[in-house]
Simulated assay, not measured.
Amino acid sequence: MALRRRSTIMTWSLLGPPAAVAVLAVTWGRDLGPVLMLAVAVALIGAALSAVHHAGVVARLVGEPFGSLVLAVAVTVIQVGLIVVLMTSGGPQTASLARDTVFAAVMITVNGIVGLSLLVGARGHGVAAFNPKGTGTALATVASLTTLTLVLPTFTGNRAGLEFSPPQLTFAAVVSLLLYGMFTLTRTGPHLHLSPAAVAENPPTEIGRSLRPPTAAVAGLSLILLVVALGAVVGLAKVGAPSIVGAVRDAALPQSIVGVGIAGPVLLPNAIAAVRAAQRRQVQTGLDLALGSAMASIGLTIPAVAVASIWLDGPLLLGLGPTQRVLLALTVVVTILTVVPGRATRLQGGLHLALLTAYVVLCINPYPASDVPV
């Protein structure tokens, strides 16, 4: 069964990037009908998942700490590429797309992946154990990054309180990058005992340890396919951007749902890996993946988008609305109460999943004033 599953993964990961390039060649410069739009959507998701898979292969060869950085950069390239392309093609209504995508990533990881890890990990024994010190450090970093980049703009007074001024945006970009870099060094430096992975009861499966490192030839092929997949993702986003924006507008859906559509597929491999680790009673791995993904999404995406904003015509709105701030505050409080004891039951997992569900429901059907700051 395991061999069959691995063979299936290898097949789609090898065929995904060239298939995406083929779809890109067929659809480039054409008006997309329903069939072609469906083909572009499928190819785009397949290329994104293939890119994450091949980044993982390269990461296993590189080993830690640079392996996690390879994965983070690959995910960031996909996110930023999609954000920038959609913002340049979608007009003023996409000015908040960077905010929506980063916030979606935070909610999906901190509530979705954490919730699933706890729910699956607590089955049988009823309790999931993890390292509260390291996990608390990671949570503090995620909460600080989210507040500095997505909450502070609401109170700056610029553009109805949603937009950083250029000096403020520069500060947010630099501090995001520095905090992410400091956390990465802390995980591998003299303070390794504070790493989320440092837990005796439930040692995680880390990149380069759980799986046999690939050969140089396999990693080289994955690197080539990774570059091809990333290029295909950006190209397909460019092709499908007008149709995506138009479909959201015609369906009378808020633009925040596009952020969920960008973050969801990119984070899907991490969610699957977290659930599989939790099934092996390695709950800490799921928490590492969740908080690490959230941290990378903010710490790398915000600086990249800040640089890209130099060439963007419209504004870059980063401030969260009242409903989003309430959900963020509740998420942080619940996660603190989950992390502090170092043990969690299925109830805590259910609470996190309930918060994710509330976020998705409010994205689809928001309160009329949810995007207007008070």
Rank of each mutant, 00 (worst) to 15 (best):
A72Q: 05
L287V: 00
N365W: 14
S297L: 01
R280H: 13
I224Y: 04
L148R: 08
P213E: 03
L3R: 12
T141N: 03
A105D: 10
E201N: 07
Q282R: 14
V239M: 10
A129W: 08
A138V: 02
T11R: 10
P322N: 15
A306Q: 07
P242W: 02
V228R: 06
L211G: 03
F183S: 11
L177G: 15
G259A: 10
L316K: 06
V218N: 12
A229S: 09
N365Q: 13
R346F: 05
G259Q: 03
R159E: 11
A105E: 12
V234M: 07
T335W: 01
T335D: 03
R281C: 03
A160E: 15
T156S: 15
D313F: 02
L230C: 05
G342W: 10
L226T: 08
L300D: 06
G321L: 13
G240R: 07
S50L: 15
T149K: 04
L192G: 09
A173Q: 00
L69I: 14
A306P: 03
S210E: 15
T156V: 15
N202V: 15
G161M: 00
S96M: 08
V52H: 11
R280A: 14
T149S: 12
L71M: 07
L14P: 01
N365H: 13
T76S: 12
D371P: 06
V326E: 02
P166E: 03
L327Q: 10
P366K: 06
T156Y: 08
Q324G: 13
G63S: 07
P315G: 14
L318A: 12
F66M: 09
A278G: 05
D313I: 01
P153W: 11
A105T: 13
V339F: 08
R4I: 13
T94I: 13
Q255N: 06
P153L: 12
A306G: 09
G112E: 06
S297T: 10
M182W: 12
A143D: 13
E206Q: 13
T156E: 12
N202H: 14
G112Y: 03
Q282I: 05
P17I: 11
T156L: 09
S297R: 04
A43M: 04
L3C: 09
L353M: 04
G220M: 11
V361C: 00
G319R: 10
A172V: 09
V80E: 09
P17Y: 07
V58S: 02
